[in-house]
Simulated scan of single mutants.
Amino acid sequence: MAAYFFASPIDVDIKLSDEEQRKQVEMKSEKEKTVSCPVYYDGDSVSGTVSIRVRDGKKLQHDGIKVEFVGSIELFYDRGHHHEFLSLSQELAAPGEMRQAQTYDFNFKNVEKQFESYQGINVKLRYFVRVSISRRMADVAKERDIWVHSFRLPADTNATIKMEVGIEDCLHIEFEYNKSKYHLKDVIVGKIYFLLVRIKIKHMELSIIRRETTGSPPNQYNESETITKFEIMDGAPVRGETIPIRLFLGGFDLTPTFRDINKKFSTRYYLNLVLIDEENRRYFKQQEITIVRIPEN
């Protein structure tokens, strides 16, 4: 990532400790480019070095150099207003002048990172290291993103989901999923029972829907996207028939469920069962599920 250049060209490079050994996540940056970010966890220290070089051998007069570790939420309809929920700062150099390249160490120890990184349709939650060089004319700043994963232990109680879809004297279906909380690599296992079928069903499909809610009323925005949709039955079922469901979550681009993060956004997941009859009428039932991230073996 390039530094911002002003009248006096300055190169700023931020190197994170042990970044090569960390898992990497691809993050979309400006203009649809992707940037590779190292993964950190809650309580991990964020440390590294900052190298500053003045081009052309000119001297750099500055009013101080600092490094910050920032967690912020950016709402796309509120551009320009970044809501910082975490801000730590360390001074690297007192006001003075620089004639040759300098390297500084920084270490933010055991940082609490209470939220997971997220990049959605209308919101982005990001963590980054920012180096600022204060100057009389114009400050120079450089940022370097990291990606944060948060683990949640599965709840002890994880009840099965049982629901019914019915149209009086025409259709009565019960469906059951093995549990209501899943981890990101889990398998959804379920069954659909046809107790009464007096309409001609053409096919049935199951989809996973992600719903992102940002802001608060009256400036609240909801965006839904279908993560996957697949047909689980083609043709008319008969009374007493049972259709098994097995859906592997590991192949999809899922995040954990986020509920009211810093009072700015939520991301929820739903299983949506749709029946379509021969006249293309649609009957559907939606059920929220919870998705968590657990430590990988």
Rank of each mutant, 00 (worst) to 15 (best):
Q114A: 07
E116D: 04
Y118N: 05
Q119R: 06
Q119E: 10
Q119W: 03
G120K: 04
N122I: 03
L125V: 05
L125N: 06
R126P: 01
F128V: 00
V129M: 02
V129T: 04
S132K: 13
I133F: 06
S134V: 04
S134Q: 09
R135F: 01
R135C: 03
M137N: 06
A141W: 04
K142I: 00
R144D: 03
W147I: 12
W147K: 04
S150G: 11
F151H: 15
R152K: 15
R152A: 11
L153N: 14
P154H: 02
P154F: 01
T157Q: 08
N158E: 01
N158R: 13
A159V: 09
A159P: 12
A159G: 08
T160M: 13
I161H: 09
M163P: 01
E168V: 12
C170G: 05
L171R: 12
L171K: 12
H172N: 15
H172F: 15
I173T: 10
F175R: 11
F175H: 14
F175T: 13
Y177V: 08
K179N: 09
K181Y: 03
Y182P: 08
L184Y: 02
K185Q: 14
K185N: 15
V189H: 12
K191H: 13
F194S: 09
L195A: 05
L196K: 12
L196P: 06
V197Q: 05
R198C: 00
